[in-house]
């Protein structure tokens, strides 16, 4: 069985938001493996430990910078990696490393990932529910539609029966309700945080990751023309939302603010004493 895991490197924002020329300043971002993909990867690695002959392959759309994140995924147990990048995917189409807004268009990501699926023919594709940056939450399900796989979105419990060729999943609905669904393989599942406990990479894993195969492909390799990666979406503005806080802020050191809160709680009658 082969499991393909989509792995995205995302920029994480700290407390400070710095916006320059309508984009988040590079200096305000720390790059890391997308949190949701981390859970998807762990699900895949656990399956490879539970069953014989399971190969875990990661698929990434991203510039060379992503290799560090991909190596981390390999260190956590993926067997090999594929990364797609091309100058045509950058903002200026000439290799500037800022990804183009074309990638906001789900159809562009699906075009690229479906080419990987065609090459690898996985039995199962695991994808994080969403990315932490753009948060479209659309890639996995749109990919499933494109490649004619079955699918399930927002999975927080997963059992795979490779012999029967089925996945039994729980989908985490709103309000503490889970939907129990059976999906035939091949399938694409989008994985929710909390489904498992993602492991840390071991030193041995990190060492081994260095020698694992990481294949880099461009549009030519995939037989995709540049027209197919021109999206219909464009970010026209990016700004910090107006804060609408009208909270009363208690000022002062910890003792005095705690004192204010304590007095408030006593007055409110929720506490005795």
């Amino acid at each position: 069985m082969q499991i393909l895991v989509t792995v995205k490197e995302v920029g994480q924002l700290g407390d400070e938001v710095v916006i320059e020329d309508g984009e988040i300043a590079e200096s305000a971002l720390e790059y890391d493996l997308n949190e949701w993909d981390e859970y998807a990867l762990e699900s895949a690695v656990q399956l490879s430990e539970a069953y014989d002959d399971v190969e875990v392959v990661t698929a990434t759309i991203g510039p060379e910078r992503s290799d560090e994140t991909i190596r981390m995924a390999l260190a956590k147990g993926a067997d090999r990696a594929v990364r797609i990048w091309d100058d045509a995917l950058t903002a200026d189409g000439a290799g500037d490393e800022t990804p183009a807004d074309g990638l906001l268009d789900t159809r562009v990501r699906v075009e690229l990932l479906s080419a990987i699926v065609e090459r690898e023919e996985p039995d199962l594709v695991l994808s994080g529910v969403q990315s932490a940056d753009a948060a479209f939450a659309s890639t996995g399900v749109a990919l499933a539609e494109e490649i004619d796989d079955a699918w399930a979105a927002v999975v927080n419990d997963l059992e795979v029966d490779p012999d029967a060729g089925t996945a039994s999943v729980h989908r985490e609905l709103e309000g503490g309700i889970e939907e129990l669904t059976d999906v035939p393989l091949p399938a694409v599942l989008t994985i929710q945080t909390g489904i498992n406990e993602p492991r840390y990479a071991s030193l041995r894993g990190i060492r081994q990751a260095q020698s694992k195969e990481l294949t880099v492909l461009d549009l030519d390799d995939l037989g995709i023309g540049t027209d197919a990666v021109t999206g219909a979406l464009e970010t026209t503005a990016l700004y910090e939302p107006e804060t609408t806080s009208d909270a009363t802020i208690w000022e002062g050191d910890a003792e005095s603010t705690a004192g204010e809160l304590a007095a408030f709680l006593r007055d409110s009658g929720v506490i005795e004493g």
């Binding site: 159809r107 948060a135 479209f136 939450a137 659309s138 749109a142 979105a153 927002v154 709103e174």
Partner: peptide, 24 residues
Amino acid sequence: PNSVNGLDYVPAIAQRLDLPLVTD
């Protein structure tokens, strides 16, 4: 809806109809 069930079909119908999708 950008609900959990929305996440389960909206990207697929957008792909099927070959229309751009903006979520949430």
